[in-house]
Nucleic acid binder design. Structure first.
Length: 306
DNA sequence: CTTACGGCCTGGGTGC
DNA sequence: TGCACCCAGGCCGTAA
């Protein structure tokens, strides 16, 4: 599932082929995950890609209708008058392909480019999102998200954490507080910092917050270096798998030994998400409402209204 | 106001 | 072999 390192990997891949290209046409299959499907066909063709950036877990394709002159050094994002934002959800893939190549199942978007290739969007579950944001509206869009997890300063991170009464895991996953983190890297960062996921953010000591900040940045940087984690079927813009999953210390390791102390890794639900941790290295907060352990066998669930 | 939680979307994998 | 169900991330409505 694409989180910050996976999205960064895709963005870097797209930078190899998209900047300078111009969209020619748009073809969509299922489009129920797109805010305004018609707008894509209406506004993308004719526009040129200035740059590809990452905004949290969004891929941001910066576009201009005034080609050529604006494109020498494309760092000038202010020249973009339109931003094509893509969120990969859980199973989204974005890649530049030749039209001659076979089309992967569940490919719902074909964005024809002026060099004869096409940008393809594939998404099995369609939990992804696509939207267009004008240059004017981009600051407001960014303002709804917190600081980027990769670049947030130690000081800003500490201020945010200390002001939160929610559990630290919930804080890490809250895109309005911190953008880019997801379940895998939240668990990995907490294990490295030796902090239990259910601890209340405001109760963390300064040393713990500093450890978490450092752990988070180390984990993210290492994952980017390895092209992200391919635990389900993440593929980068060239269709290659990442390899950070072999470095996971807790994620999806329930019952396996902690790499630090050998204690079996446990899994509980925190903030509505599976949370993996070492009960020895990451001590539970005292005297909170006990969290139910997840039973090994399936739990009974019934639908409402029955 | 902030936080917590259940439900919803979808379909591949799993376990019976 | 079939099939019910679990689960994932983000978002939204509702409740405290």
């Amino acid at each position: 599932m694409p989180e910050l390192p996976e999205v960064e990997t895709v963005v870097r891949g797209l930078r190899a082929s998209l900047p300078g290209r111009r969209f020619v046409s748009v073809r969509l299959g299922k489009s129920d995950f797109i805010d305004d499907p018609a707008a894509l066909g209406e506004h993308l063709p004719g526009r040129q890609v200035l740059a590809v950036e990452r905004i949290g877990k969004f891929i941001c394709v910066q576009l201009t209708r005034h080609g050529g002159q604006a494109l020498q050094r494309s760092q000038d994002a202010s020249a973009a008058d339109l931003h094509f934002l893509i969120h990969l959800g859980m199973t989204g893939r974005l890649a530049v392909r030749s039209p001659a190549e076979p089309v992967a199942p569940h490919t719902h978007g074909f964005f024809e480019l002026d060099d004869g290739n096409e940008l393809r969007y594939t998404d099995i579950r369609r939990f992804g999102r696509m939207l267009l944001v004008t240059g004017d509206a981009l600051p407001a869009f960014q303002a709804r998200l917190g600081a980027d997890a990769l670049f947030v300063s130690a000081r800003q991170f500490a201020e945010q954490v200390q002001g939160r009464r929610a559990r630290i895991k919930a804080f890490l996953l809250d895109q309005k507080a911190l953008r880019g983190m997801g379940n895998i890297y939240a668990d990995e960062s907490l294990w490295r910092a030796r902090i239990h996921p259910a601890r209340l953010a405001a109760n963390l000591g300064a040393d713990e917050i500093a450890r978490l900040h450092q752990a988070m940045r180390q984990v993210l940087r290492a994952a980017i270096k390895l092209g992200g984690s391919s635990i389900s079927d993440f593929l980068d813009a060239e269709g290659k798998r990442g390899s950070y999953q072999v470095r996971h210390r807790v994620y999806d390791r329930e019952g396996e030994k902690c790499f630090r102390c050998g204690t079996p890794i446990e899994r509980i639900i925190v903030a509505g998400r599976s949370s993996h941790f070492c009960p020895n290295c990451q001590r539970a907060p005292r005297a909170r409402k006990p969290r139910k352990r997840i039973a090994a066998r399936k739990s009974v669930r019934r639908r409402s209204g029955s």
